[in-house]
Amino acid sequence: MGLTPRPEPNVVSYDPKGGEGWVTTRLDFLVNWGRANSLWPMPFGTACCAIEFMATAAAQFDLARFGMERMSFSPRQADVLICAGRVPFKLAPVLRRIWQQMPQPKWAISMGACASTGGMFDNYAVVQGIDTIIPVDVYVPGCPPRPEGLIYGIMMLQEKVKRERAADPSIRHEMEPDPTSQLYIPPSAINELSEPFGNAVHQTRSGL
């Protein structure tokens, strides 16, 4: 691990051996510029974070500045899924279904602590991080994140979109879950990710 410096967002790297010409890279730039500035969000709002998401979309913070004012309540016309709020197990198949209904290219933002890790809800009912259900591009911390935090997450996603290259086939690869268990990642990894950590281990002692 360790922090690696991020490349400049607007520069498309040119690989002379890859057989890509000047035209392709410039075209990538144009397409990515267009995409990044007109992302249509699909708000999957469940709880408190959805209220802050609404505040972000309202007058004071004005999501329209990022080309995102067009809320796409149908997943079939959406580019980016913003999962705002906790996701209990009962909602897990719904989230999976909505993700599968979205067409490529698609991205996902996990907004808030509960969506990202289960947050303070380390109990029988809540999924410990939506990345066990769908692939996530940007995690926004906070409980709930302030609108500025969400906007920063959106800008990070825009940077990621701007670095994509049409010639790279792996970007558009739709992940297929394991046919029997319907899981993307192996069960042992899920169990490991969901282990209680830190203070939570001691706080949930019964008795006293």
Binding site: T46, A47, G85, R86, P88, K90, L91, V94, F121, N123, Y124, A125, V126, Q203, T204, R205, S206
Partner: peptide, 15 residues
């Protein structure tokens, strides 16, 4: 309903 059942009352017994 129940799509947002997060076990508040259960967790309250441990806090």
């Amino acid at each position: 309903i129940g799509y947002l059942h997060c076990g508040f009352e259960k967790i309250g017994e441990y806090r």
